[in-house]
């Protein structure tokens, strides 16, 4: 788990502008401003930036009632899960995004790249062979991110719990927010799990 904790985001501060005394070579006095502006547009820096922008206009209490709820509202209504099918739960996962259940009405749109996702739905049996790939995908997703363990295999290993090749629960690898029981769970159960996750995001404070 050492790699997971090491992968927590670290807020970077822009380095001090180099001065003419530091370097023997002639350098521009202005720092690389465009790069820093792109950095501040990241989601994890939205809250400090918003607080800084609204700090002079609103009281502390009004900020607490406005900024964090607005951030949570935007996040929970545009959950993008990773389009990553592992086993038979992936069939139910696919059905949940079809015409009959239509998870897109909750703003849930599967994306093909982990860089565009904030929700990892582990839908199937995770073997030890694929475990480090799952961690890599999780680490490639931008913050803030959530994990749903879908089905008995991802929750606790399922019928393969004592097997030599199966991870007994995906929470041994990544932190899980919502567990969905079932073998496989119906699309309604997946939608229920997504709605519970939205409730969790709604109540998010820090």
């Amino acid at each position: 788990m050492g790699r997971l904790s090491a992968a927590k985001p670290v807020l970077t501060t822009p380095a001090a502008a180099p001065t003419a005394e530091d370097s023997p070579l002639p350098m521009a006095t202005e720092p690389a401003v465009p790069f820093i502006e792109i950095e501040t547009l990241r989601a994890r820096e939205f809250l400090p930036a918003a607080k800084e922008a609204l700090g002079s206009l609103l009281s502390e209490q009004a900020q607490g009632k406005l900024i964090r709820p607005m951030f949570n509202w935007a996040g929970r209504n545009s959950l993008f899960p990773l389009h990553w099918g592992l086993a038979c739960c992936a069939i139910e996962f696919a059905a949940a995004f079809g015409a009959r259940w239509d998870a897109e009405r909750f703003g849930v749109v599967p994306r093909s790249s982990p860089r565009q996702c904030d929700l990892l739905i582990v839908n199937g049996t995770v073997t030890w062979k694929v475990a480090h790939k799952l961690i890599t995908l999780y680490e490639q997703m931008p913050e803030p991110k959530w994990v749903i363990a879908m089905g008995n295999c991802a929750t606790g290993g399922g019928p393969f719990r004592t097997a030599y090749s199966v991870v007994p629960g995906v929470d041994k690898l990544v932190p899980v927010d919502v567990y969905i029981a079932g073998c496989p769970p119906r699309p309604e159960a997946l939608l229920d799990g997504i709605l519970r996750l939205e409730q969790l995001i709604k109540e998010r404070k820090e």
Binding site: T162, Y164, P168
Partner: peptide, 25 residues
């Protein structure tokens, strides 16, 4: 099929399946 560094031959009859309590990942 088994991950890199896996030390067992799991289809031998002497291989014991076990409940993964206290598993170190």
């Amino acid at each position: 099929l088994t991950p890199t560094g896996y030390e067992f031959h799991p289809l031998l009859r002497s291989f014991q399946l076990h409940e993964p309590e206290g598993l170190e990942v």
